[in-house]
Simulated scan of single mutants.
Amino acid sequence: MTRQKPPNTNRQLVLEDPQRLSDGAGGYSESWAPLGTVWADLASQSGRRTGQDGTSLSLQRYRIFLRASPQGARSRPRPGQRFREGQRLFLIDAVSEADTQGRYLVCHCIEEVVP
């Protein structure tokens, strides 16, 4: 989807990458390492509520716009990473260019909220 006007990048988000840490017994645990801070524009999309095993979870989709980084740069978001804004977490599903000049990226994300 192309965007007609530049995004209003007024939200500060931390880009995080998953890290596997050995537990010393042949397994691992997962933690998240910060890669840096980006300024972004969040656009809310559809949401839904789901649940299983007696739990309830709200899934909210967002499009997150930010300045583009070159392919292969650590600062360029990838699927499987996430953005953090305080306690809020936005899991990245897909990343594409947001404009025809390649100046901005759009990250398709999901925020999971336990009501």
Score class of each variant (00 low, 15 high):
Pro77Asn: 06
Val38Gly: 04
Gln45Thr: 03
Ala73Ile: 07
Gly86Ile: 04
Arg103Ala: 12
Asp93Arg: 11
Phe65Ala: 09
Gln81Ser: 06
Asp17Ser: 12
Pro70Thr: 09
Ser29Met: 08
Arg63Ala: 11
Ala98Gln: 04
Gly102Lys: 03
Gln101Arg: 10
Gln60Phe: 00
Ala73Val: 05
Glu97Phe: 13
Arg74Lys: 13
Ser44Tyr: 02
Arg67Asn: 12
Gly54Tyr: 10
Arg103Tyr: 08
Ala43Ser: 11
Asp53Glu: 14
Pro79Glu: 06
Arg82Ser: 02
Leu57Phe: 09
Gly27Arg: 06
Val114His: 14
Ser46Pro: 01
Gly102Met: 08
Trp32Lys: 07
Thr50Arg: 15
Cys107Glu: 04
Phe83Cys: 04
Arg3His: 05
Asp23Thr: 02
Gln60Glu: 05
Pro77Trp: 07
Leu35Trp: 01
Arg20Lys: 15
Gly72Cys: 11
Asn8Leu: 12
Gly47Met: 04
Ser29Leu: 10
Arg67Gln: 12
Leu105Arg: 07
Ile92Cys: 02
Glu85Leu: 14
Ala43Thr: 13
Gly27Phe: 01
Glu97Cys: 06
Ser46Arg: 11
Cys109Asn: 00
Gly102Tyr: 06
Gly102His: 07
Glu112Pro: 09
Asp53Pro: 02
Phe83Arg: 02
Gln101Thr: 08
Leu66Arg: 05
Glu85His: 10
Tyr28Cys: 07
Asp17Cys: 09
